[in-house]
Amino acid sequence: MTQPHDTQGGFQITVNPSGRAFQSQGNETILAAAIRSGVGLPYGCKDGACGSCKCKKVSGSVTHADHQSKALSAEEESAGWVLTCCAQPTSDVVLESRQVTDESAYPIKKMPVRVSSLQKKSHDVMVVRLQLPAADTFRYHAGQYIEFILRDGARRAYSMANAPHTQGDAPGVELHIRHLPGGKFTDHVFGAMKEKEILRVEGPFGSFFLREDSDKPIILLASGTGFAPIKALLEHMQFKGIQRPTTLYWGGRRPEDLYMHDWLLEQAAQMPHLRYVPVVSDALPQDAWAGRTGYVHQAVLDDFADLSGYQVYACGAPIVVESARTSYSEQRGLPAEEFFADAFTSEADKHGG
């Protein structure tokens, strides 16, 4: 199919230090062109809210669509930083991004899925299992996400909570969905959704997955349903026999927010290299909570004086992810390129509401 000629299009994007290059088409963003071309640039929300795709522009010019200043400030933009999810090239562009990986680029597919089970894990968390088409192979990395395509074209992104190998004979994915009252999609999940319902999804997306070419010890950091992709990482590590020393910190407001606490205790018993540290920020007397309290990202600071030899994988609320990113690198020496994150942005986050 030929692309309509467009004065905005056809620019070459080069990514250093890998030297990977790809072409933009029409009015697409740099990130959309990279995903279409199978180049694994880092990204999260694809909507200008999380900042995961921010990288340095070495040369060339871009125009940015609307985005949040917390994702890219005016000062950062004038200093040559770009948000690839919102940036359209207006010339050939050279970027600097360390996380380009070929093997991350599994084909992105649209497909129908059937709700196979709904299990309420706490007052506001539902574990939803989706049956995938049996005739099709859906490949993804543990840690990646899919998007529901709603009838009006709106999208909702959720990380897969099961590792790819668990699909086996019954292709399917597990999602952990938190109820946001008034949210069009989650009100449906917690209200009218029934088993056997058919939905449409597209994926896999995201650059959050285990870097298996490293032997560094790992810190996994999750808040709330940010545990979903972390669970997939753990299952994958167990399946592949990856025995790097791993400490998992999972934070919730109340103990019930750690909705798979018992499952994690079982995993820790089976994985001698795994240490599990649950953290509760707002425990009440009736919770009888005897474990760690406070903010989950702070618990890591309390336990580690030096993170210079570690990799950190953080997932959950944007405030938790950004607090961790900043404090671990500035106060504990974590190399910026060893911090991998997936910030869960809700529709309210995306639109500043």
Rank of each mutant, 00 (worst) to 15 (best):
Q3S: 12
D6R: 12
Q8I: 03
Q8Y: 15
T14W: 10
N16P: 00
P17G: 14
G19C: 11
G19R: 09
R20P: 01
A21D: 02
F22E: 11
Q25C: 10
Q25K: 07
G26Q: 12
E28G: 09
E28S: 03
A32G: 07
I35L: 12
G38F: 11
G40Y: 06
G40Q: 02
P42Q: 06
G44F: 06
K46R: 10
C50H: 01
C55I: 05
S59Q: 08
S59I: 03
V62L: 10
H64C: 12
A65S: 14
A65M: 13
A65L: 12
Q68P: 09
K70F: 12
E75M: 13
E75Q: 15
E76F: 11
V82A: 10
A87E: 02
Q88D: 06
V94S: 13
S97I: 02
V100C: 04
T101C: 09
S104L: 14
A105N: 12
A105M: 12
K109F: 14
K109A: 15
K110H: 04
M111I: 09
M111Y: 10
V113F: 06
S116Q: 11
S117T: 08
Q119G: 02
K120M: 13
K121E: 11
V128S: 04
L130C: 01
Q131E: 13
P133H: 06
A134L: 07
A134M: 10
A135N: 14
F138W: 11
F138A: 05
R139L: 15
Q144T: 07
I146F: 14
E147R: 09
I149A: 11
L150T: 07
D152Y: 12
G153I: 13
A154D: 15
R155K: 15
Y158N: 01
N162S: 15
A163P: 05
H165M: 08
H165E: 11
T166D: 04
D169L: 09
A170G: 03
L175W: 01
R178S: 10
G183F: 05
F190G: 05
M193V: 03
K196Y: 13
I198D: 05
V201R: 01
E202I: 09
E212K: 10
D213M: 05
D213S: 09
A222E: 06
F227R: 01
I230W: 04
A232H: 00
Q238H: 02
Q238S: 02
F239A: 07
T247P: 00
Y249E: 02
M260Q: 11
W263A: 14
L264Y: 00
L264D: 00
L265P: 00
Q267R: 12
P272R: 02
H273N: 06
P278N: 13
V280P: 01
L284K: 14
V300F: 13
D302P: 07
D302V: 04
D302F: 12
D303P: 03
D306W: 15
Y310Q: 09
G316P: 04
G316T: 07
A317C: 07
A324F: 08
Y328K: 06
E330K: 10
E330A: 14
E337L: 14
A343W: 04
K350C: 09
K350D: 04
K350S: 09
H351E: 15
H351D: 13
H351N: 15
